[in-house]
Design a protein around this nucleic acid. Structure first.
Lengths: 144, 144
DNA sequence: TCTCAATTAAGAATTATTCTCCTTTAGGTA
DNA sequence: TACCTAAAGGAGAATAATTCTTAATTGAGA
């Protein structure tokens, strides 16, 4: 995702293009791992050493409100952010805080069809996401 | 859920049966709305006015660790707890913090079958929960 | 280039949770 | 039934994550 594209996103969302906002949004795209505010601050501090913590929270809120990013539901007492705003699912590691995206169009269609037929009483569905809990297999190294 | 049954659960989980633990676990079952620690404290303060906040957090942690309750994934910066520990799904209201349980055995079987066939590369699935975002229809009152 | 509403910086305040230390108690054992 | 002690709880301080306030800076429209 180029700076140009990020500027375009901010512009389309009617948000002023500021260096802080560019840096924060770019951090989310580059990290691509559902970072926390603290992760983002750590990431941008090299190129933007004087961005205030309060600014980061304020910018993150603005990005969420303007549908450029989303908050991720977790059991943590810390907010994680997602740069992917189209619907998808998440793999949650039961051993760590790792969260991975999971895209599966076949599954999406299945769920769409299922709930079109069935529906949920007294509830208007807006979005269906899977929370898939489990363990990531280790990459390389000694097999356990 | 009777006090007797709750005592049984604590005993089976190898947890000492204390008045605080009984009160907190009963609160979760009675409230039955994915309460926060603060909700629970408010609920039990009438019958147990001197239970310490730190105790509540400690007891909740013990109940989670011993699989008597579960934490609910949310975007809030506050932990919600669930008294239902068998697998089920959640309806999340996009307008409030309301979270409702959603059980659907047909759906469970569908998902089970789907992922048995498909699987997820480099990931061992332990549990699949649906996060269904939407709006609850208003009960009674003027139609909007 | 100028202007100003919007944004940011800085740091204080708030909220939710965790930690520490001392007191109390659940329940096992004799 | 009484005793004992490891475990649990109370109280309050500490920590961490986020929000708020005020003054300074700035993006972008005119």
């Amino acid at each position: 995702m180029t700076v140009r594209e990020i500027k375009e996103k901010l512009k389309n969302a009617d948000l002023k293009i500021t260096p802080q906002r560019l840096a924060i949004l770019e951090a989310i795209y580059k990290l691509n791992n559902h970072p926390t505010a603290d992760n983002i601050i750590d990431y941008i501090k090299e190129t933007h050493p004087s961005v205030a913590v309060g600014t980061v929270y304020k910018v993150l809120d603005a990005l969420v409100e303007n549908h450029l990013i989303k908050k991720v539901k977790t059991e943590n007492n810390v907010t994680h952010y997602d740069g992917i705003i189209y619907n998808h699912h998440h793999l949650y590691c039961s051993e760590s805080d790792r969260i991975e995206d999971y895209m599966d169009e076949e599954l999406d269609e299945l769920l769409e069809k299922y709930f079109s037929n069935k529906g949920i009483k007294n509830f208007n569905i807006e979005e269906i996401k899977l929370q898939i809990n489990g363990r990531f297999k280790k990459r390389g190294g000694i097999k356990k």
